[in-house]
Design a protein around this nucleic acid. Structure first.
Length: 200
DNA sequence: AGCACGATTAACT
DNA sequence: GTTAATCGTGCTC
């Protein structure tokens, strides 16, 4: 395992599109209550950028729900939607500017027995290939909203497995924005790592 | 106080 | 391809 470091706050305090693309191929780690690790390699992300972005929850100003996005970078923004699903985001850019990266896809890495148990019975390919599935697989809920990813005692963080991939990255429109007006609905702010490029 | 809908998922025709 | 599940949130009255 080469060069495994916890990503510092300076990683998140950059343009959201840069962070979203740079997260591909890195490892999301969740420390369980018994200190065991569950983790996965990030394969898909989306960027949500500021009040002007009408797909971003910050469009309606600062609320109790979205307040994490307005805080410092390197924190988790976790919210509940569709009456049953949790979504995991990482806060980006400078404090006071509301922006975040949504995690949409992983490949399970460590703690797969626990991931399978939480998600079973599902085919392996469907364990963590969606934002709600990621949170179910890793046990992420409201208690992680506002969690700091950049301290020694963080129970949720990103490990750096090396530089962002130079190839194998595709982009496209963000998913699930049914009632969002243009041009925001079609902004190519979704980033995917092609299968096979997770090992570099 | 009421209501429409959501950064989704799984099941079904 | 279509749709039910299920409830917190923000908006309107």
């Amino acid at each position: 395992m080469q060069n495994v470091d916890k990503l510092p706050r300076s990683f998140y305090e950059r343009p959201t599109l840069t962070v979203a693309k740079s997260l591909l191929g890195k490892r999301l780690v969740r420390i369980e209550s018994n200190r065991e690790r569950t983790s996965g390699i990030i394969m898909e992300t989306e960027a949500y950028i500021g009040r002007d972005d009408l797909a971003c929850h910050a469009k309606s100003g600062r609320t109790q729900r979205n307040q994490s996005m307005w805080g410092p970078p390197g924190m988790a923004y976790v919210y509940f939607t569709y009456g049953m699903h949790w979504m995991l985001n990482f806060v980006t850019e400078a404090e006071g500017f509301p922006a975040a990266v949504l995690l949409r896809g992983l490949i399970p890495d460590e703690g797969t027995a626990r991931i399978v148990k939480r998600r079973s019975p599902r085919p392996p390919a469907e364990l963590t290939n969606g934002p709600g599935k990621i949170c179910q697989a890793l046990g992420i809920d409201r208690s992680f909203d506002g969690h700091d990813l950049c301290t020694r005692q963080s129970r949720l963080y990103i490990e750096n497995l090396g530089p962002p991939p130079q190839s194998g990255v595709t982009t496209g429109p963000r998913v699930g924005l049914n009632n969002v007006p243009e041009p925001w609905k079609s902004k190519p702010w979704r980033f995917l790592l092609a299968p096979g490029f997770e090992d570099r």
